[in-house]
Structure formats: C-alpha cells, structure tokens
Design a protein around this nucleic acid. Structure first.
Length: 433
RNA sequence: GUGGAUGUAGCUCAGUGGUAGAGUCCCAGAAUGUGGAUCUGGUUGUCGCGGGUUCGAUACCCGUCAUCCACCCCA
C-alpha cells in the first residue's frame, strides 16, 4: 500500500522534455524573426475569457470542443480555442489606442476538447499573425509572403501556399443554383485533397445532382498554372469581378517578388470556418501532404463586428506549431542534442574542482555556454554526457596535467586531444569551433 | 463524440491460467587516467489502473485511463 499519487497527464496534453522543448523554442524563435522582419508586433491576451465573448459566433462544432466552466465568482468562462476570436475582442477594446493598420503576431497555447491523433492535441500552440484595419490586395499578399518567409526561415523546403477566394466560389455557386447548399458543398469540396476526385464527385452528386456536380468538379480542378486556372474559374463564375481582380493583384505581387512558384491557386480550398469572407489559404508540405495544412488563414471582414460598430477588416494566418513539429520530426528524424552547452569542463579529479569552476567562469565570460561536470566519474561517461548536452568540446585537466600546467581540449566529434599551455588559448580554440 | 487496434524492464518487443523473459541500454570488472572492438558478471518490472471469474490471473471477462488509426472537425 502506498499513498503515492500516480503521476500522469490528461489525454491530449503533454509534457515537453528538454529535447523537444528546445526544438519547439527554436521553431518559435525563428517564426518570431520572420514576423518581426515583416513588421508584426507581439501581443498577449488572457487564457480565460467570458464564454459569451469566445462563443458569440462559434458554430455548433466549436462550441462542443470548448473547455468551459463556471469560475469561483459564478462567471461563465471558457478557455480560448484559437487566437483570432480573442484578437477580435482585443481590437474592439483597444482600436483607438493602436496604430492602424495593426500588424500583430501572437504565439500561445490554445485548447480544444476534441479527439487526439498524431499532430493533433487538446492543448497546442498556435502562431497567429494578422493585419487589421485594411482591406487590400497588398495586405492579403503580406500574409502570404510572411508565410513564405517563415517557411524559409524554418528551413522547410518545398512548402506550397494554396490560395482561393470565397467570393469567386460563392458567385459560381449562385450561377449553378447551389447557393442554398453552400455549407454542405464547401465541406465536401474541402475534402478533395484527402478523399480524391471520385469520392468527392460521388458525394457532390448526392447534394447537387449530376449536372451541377460536373460543373463544380470542373470549377475545382487545380492541375494548371495560376493564370489559366484563374481565367477558368473567373469565366465559370460569370466573368471578371472584384474578387477575381483581387486574386490577380495578389498573384502579380507574388510574381514581382519572385515567389509565384510556391503560390498555387486551388479552387477547392474553402476553409471550414464561416468567418472568412475573402481570400483563404492553406500551406502544405510537398513531401508530407497527408499531415494537412500547417499554416492556414484568410480574410475576415466582419470579425470584430460582434464587439464593436467600428469597421475592422482583417486578414491573417496561423501556423500550427505542434503539427509542424510532428511533420519535421517525420521528415528528418535525427536526434537533436538536449542542451545548449558548448563546452563541458570535465571533473577528472575532485581536488581540482576550484580550477574547473574558475575555467568555466572564464569560458562563460568569453561567451561560451559552459558547464562543469559536478562529480569525478570516469571520463568516457563525462564525454557521453557532454555530447548529449550538445557540447562540441570537453576541457580536461587531471593531476598529471596540473603538474605540467597544461590543459587538454578534446574535440568530441573527432575524439582528438589537443594540449594548451594556457587556459585562454584553449577557450579561444573552443570559440573558433 | 462514434468505431477499431494497442498498453509487459529506460527503449524495441517476446511470452504463459501456477506471481515473467530476449535484444539494447545502464552499472561493475578484465584494463592501468582518457568513450567507438571483445569478454565476464550485475541491476531494472505494482506485466497501464480498478473490479470480477478462479485454489491461483500478466494471461479469461467487465469497467476505466492513455496511445495510435478511421469518421467528424481542424492547426
């Protein structure tokens, strides 16, 4: 019998050991770099909000997934399930204190009580970036170019941003007389990449009938270059209109910036969330399309209307950090070091510990991340520890070296030893790599 | 939320109605103060958790928790 409480975490929630937390922090830092380079500034909002704020516009599905409870003061509260709805509240509350257009990024955890799968958790981190207060092609493209920059900064090769415009899609649905079945149709079309053409066609036929199905299948084809695809869907949607002009302008910017290769017009991308009103986009890894979109978003011109009469159009996107991490793990499963240490000062003999600590101080002052092994164990063990912590070098001085007044520097990767008559020289060698 | 699979040593996994093994890892030694070979010895488990059937359960039954997969939805 024991009264020890079994340590465990909730379904869909996770601990992060240094190995994966270092990787997460690394990804997040790189994203921040990309956001700042594109003019975005950080904000934060509370984890808990009044339930009416978060659920004001939520559909039935979202509502079911939200963590919601009554707090100690009897308030009906909920944990944020994304960062966009809190942003809407934030903008409505503070728009007169902010410079518009307002570009913000927000990296934070969100919670959804849905079932788990690989890369899908109940607690996960979103990295949102939005431009609020303007409705223009340039703002739309800024989001796309920030996605592209972010992927580049992360060193992710082969990411494609798929873009579409809900307006064009809705015009087309009116023409084929399917506007009343818009919700069902959007949901089926959104699954094209996952279930394939045949199955999509079969499902659409049930909803729309055969003729409309064929027209729709023609509309959502995406096996051409940007220009011809745009021409096709524009004419199917009844000819040139402001929405197709918008897409055209965005593509012109992508071409001018030399980024048109990773931008694809995909008429089947619609996004499930009903607050999108303009362009929508999703980002896929060419090598790993199955994991789904790792960065999605779009334009929402009415988002803050729940909380203010101010007109606050916006456009933005969100990187799923955990999904991206799961993807990167699958792509390159090399073991990453579990630390930041560059140099390990080994403890060859505990009597010389003062010297080791002094050496560590010197190394840190020289800008080297450094630690002293805290007990005198066998050196091979200390080398292995050093490598696990990511160190490239080990500094050694035993009694014999002490008598000769030298330091030994071991390069761990090549397992070679070098003698130095002064500590400064050894530390310099570490700095040089 | 619904359906399916899984849960045994730090890790990868065997196994059986009579309270457990292999490989690897780890530790000690051969070997002397400097890790990639070899050899010797050794440690490790409430067999996910709770209940039931049984003389006896890790194994059979029920429940529960967690993971993975599909649906749903999405990051």
């Amino acid at each position: 019998m024991s009264d020890i409480i079994k340590p465990r975490v909730l379904k869909g929630f996770r601990d992060f050991l240094p190995g994966s937390e270092i990787e997460r922090a690394d990804l997040s830092e790189k994203l921040v770099m990309a956001f700042r380079q594109s003019g975005f500034v950080p904000i934060d909002t509370p984890v808990l909000e009044y339930a009416e704020i978060l659920l004001g516009k939520a559909g039935g599905e979202t509502e079911k997934q939200v963590y919601r409870f009554t707090d100690h003061g009897g308030r009906d509260v909920a944990m944020r399930f994304d960062l966009t709805v809190p942003l809407a509240r934030f903008m409505a509350e503070h728009y007169d204190e902010l410079e518009l257009p307002f570009r913000r990024y927000h990296i934070a955890k969100v919670w959804r009580g849905e079932n788990t799968q690989r890369g899908r958790y109940r607690e996960f981190t979103q990295c949102d970036f939005d431009i609020i207060g303007v409705d223009s092609a340039s703002a739309d493209f800024d989001i796309v170019s920030t996605i592209v920059l972010a992927m580049k900064t992360l060193g992710v090769a082969g990411a494609t941003v798929k873009i579409n415009h809900r307006g064009i899609f809705n015009r087309f649905l009116s023409i084929i007389g399917a506007e009343t079945k818009s919700a069902d149709t959007l949901r089926i079309v959104d699954k094209l990449a996952k279930i394939g053409k045949e199955e999509t066609g079969r499902l659409l036929e049930q909803v729309l009938g055969n003729t409309a199905k064929d027209e729709l299948m023609e509309f959502i084809r995406e096996d051409e270059a940007f220009g011809p695809t745009l021409e096709r869907i524009t004419s199917l949607a009844g000819g040139s209109n402001p929405d197709s002009d918008r897409i055209e302008q965005i593509f012109a910017m992508a071409s001018a910036a030399g980024q048109d290769a990773c931008l694809k017009l995909a008429p089947s991308i619609t996004r499930g969330l009903d607050y999108y009103t303009g362009v929508v986009f999703e980002t896929f890894l060419d090598k790993l399309p199955d994991i789904g979109s790792i960065c999605s978003g779009g334009r929402y011109n009415n988002l803050a209307s729940l909380y203010t009469k101010q007109d606050l159009p916006g456009v933005g996107a969100s990187v799923g950090l955990d999904r991206l991490l799961a993807a990167l793990d699958t792509l390159n499963h090399k073991a990453k070091p579990h630390g930041y240490t560059q140099l390990l000062v080994t403890m060859a003999d505990s009597r010389l510990a003062p010297q080791y600590q002094a050496a560590a101080f010197l190394a840190r002052n020289a800008g080297i991340a450094c630690e002293v092994y805290p007990e005198a164990r066998k050196l091979p063990l200390q080398y292995a520890y050093a490598e696990k912590k990511g160190a490239s070098f080990a500094l050694i001085r035993g009694i014999e070296e002490n008598d000769r007044n030298i330091w030994l520097l071991r390069k761990l990767s090549s397992r070679t030893m070098q003698e130095y008559s002064s500590l400064e020289d050894a530390i310099n060698a570490v700095k040089m790599g």
